[in-house]
């Protein structure tokens, strides 16, 4: 199969990778580039664990061809905390403080889906949050504390606390 070198813009860095057309973005991220924070839970777009941001919007990397992703800004969970200091993003912190993380396997996807929502709609309501997270499955938390974590961050944001 013909392989080609493509350039991927991930977390504000350009990576050159050799891929074949059949390579899925999730696999390129995880296996070739070591962005293992992007998880693979079902491979069929049902669980949302592989969620990444593409041009700021939540995408399922298990249903994306790597070759289709050139020229787009990709953000993985590794790109959310402060890149220089390593300090957690307040949304990440909110997840921890609210007990919204148990096994942690869905957490990267949950956080990225929430980020995409709030970047677009900083005043997101409970309904908006549920709408944005309905494709991110979690089996540990029962979602309630995840919802609280996101709501609390939205509130802090609106009050200028973060």
């Amino acid at each position: 199969m013909k392989k080609q070198v493509i350039k991927l813009d991930i977390n504000n860095r350009i990576y050159e990778v050799l891929v074949s057309p059949t390579d899925l973005l999730v696999d390129v991220l995880r296996k070739q580039l070591g962005f293992t924070g992007t998880k693979k839970g079902c491979g069929q777009g049902d669980c949302g664990a592989c969620t990444i941001l593409v041009d700021g919007k939540a995408h399922l990397s298990c249903l994306m061809l790597a070759v289709s992703s050139e020229g787009k800004k990709i953000t993985t969970i590794e790109g959310i905390a402060n890149q220089e200091t390593g300090e957690l993003h307040p949304l990440q912190k909110s997840f921890l403080d609210h007990g919204a993380v148990q096994c942690g396997f869905c957490s990267p996807g949950m956080i990225l889906s929430s980020m995409a929502l709030i970047d677009e709609n900083p005043n997101a309501t409970e309904e908006d949050i549920k709408h944005a997270l309905e494709g991110n499955l979690c089996r540990c938390t029962g979602y309630v504390l995840i919802l609280e974590a996101v709501e609390s961050y939205v509130k802090a944001l609106s009050q200028g606390e973060v």
């Binding site: 777009g45 969620t51 939540a58 399922l60 994306m64 889906s113 494709g135």
Partner: peptide, 12 residues
């Protein structure tokens, strides 16, 4: 359209 799949599916 809003009831179709998940947010990620609607974005893609």
């Amino acid at each position: 359209v809003g009831q179709l799949g998940s947010n990620q599916v609607r974005v893609m």
